[in-house]
Nucleic acid binder design. Structure first.
Lengths: 178, 178
DNA sequence: CGTGAAACAGACCGACC
DNA sequence: GGTCGGTCTGTTTCACG
């Protein structure tokens, strides 16, 4: 496997307009996922490419939407949102109207930082960030007031063992460390 | 409640060195959580503060670790990691040695982007990003080969309804929209 | 906190090999 | 893809009110 130095993107036969990511792109993206403040100069040095070629690649990946955005990541604890909660939800009904209502509800709560429909088409996993259990309860009350839910159960995060925004690029074509 | 315009940080009586975040800081952080590429100039204009004062606040919050880092956020789909999975795990044993082993294992897998110990002290929620179900199975096999686990169940994400890195600052002192 | 300014770094974008 | 060099924008740090 090690003679394959390029990365194979899934769906490239289905999506012909999807562009290939090569090894150099992976190196650049790996750096930018770690530190988005890197100057093109510093970046080009780390990935072993000229300033200009590096800049062109970054711009291209930004245009294509591969690099979606650059943001500041805050310390949740220091920002007063030290309590993270997973909320497991079962839909009260199955129709499009309910889903629309649910979408609008969760979109309106900044405390809810993630909402995922999971396999089964009935279950949802939510993630919220609040200051404490009292704040969670207020969120819960406001949520169920806006949308009908069957079976809501919360799991409070005691410890964040790992948490990263980095999409795993090194594990695409081959096995990763493990 | 609406007469309280300042933000109350939890634990400020426990952590006397923790600094207060005022309304202006919240405005700045809100902007930077949305767009980390904002120049100090553009930022100061949006939050209604002078260039220099704005710059001083940003630097201070960076020093204090409130602004943990600035990173590039990639499009997972375009990066070939379109499948997101929640993995629910029960620990096989309860001792410190197992936990150490578990920590090291998950740290070594870039596909595993989140690991949370949840209330009960026995349950863990993991989140992984992989290219497809086959890649998930490979990850699963490698994971259970490294660490003993009881009850592993996976939930595949069919749809990401909401996903943000923004810590909810506006919902700290008062109720948020909802 | 605000202004202004100066010195420097970095982004951006040609032209060319 | 690499190099050169220009312009312009943005950062960083002054001094001063």
């Amino acid at each position: 496997m090690s003679h394959l130095s390029f990365i194979v993107i899934k769906n490239w036969d289905i999506c012909p307009d999807m562009h290939q990511i090569d090894d150099m792109d992976v190196r650049i993206l790996t750096q930018l996922q770690r530190d988005g403040t890197l100057s093109v100069d510093a970046l080009s040095e780390r990935v072993n490419l000229s300033r200009n070629a590096c800049w062109r690649r970054v711009k291209l990946m930004e245009e294509r939407g591969l690099i979606r955005d650059r943001v500041a990541i805050l310390d949740a604890e220091a920002a007063g949102c030290g309590l993270s909660v997973f909320i497991f939800v079962r839909a009260a009904s199955h129709d499009a109207d309910w889903l629309r209502q649910f979408r609008e509800a969760v979109a309106g709560f900044p405390e809810i930082v993630g909402v995922y429909r999971t396999s089964g088409d009935l279950d949802y996993v939510l993630r919220a960030r609040v200051s404490d259990v009292k704040a969670y309860d207020r969120l819960y009350q406001r949520l169920i007031a806006k949308v009908k839910l069957a079976d809501v159960s919360a799991s409070f995060v005691m410890e964040e063992i790992k948490e990263t925004t980095q999409i795993p690029l090194s594990a695409l074509g081959r096995g990763s460390s493990g």
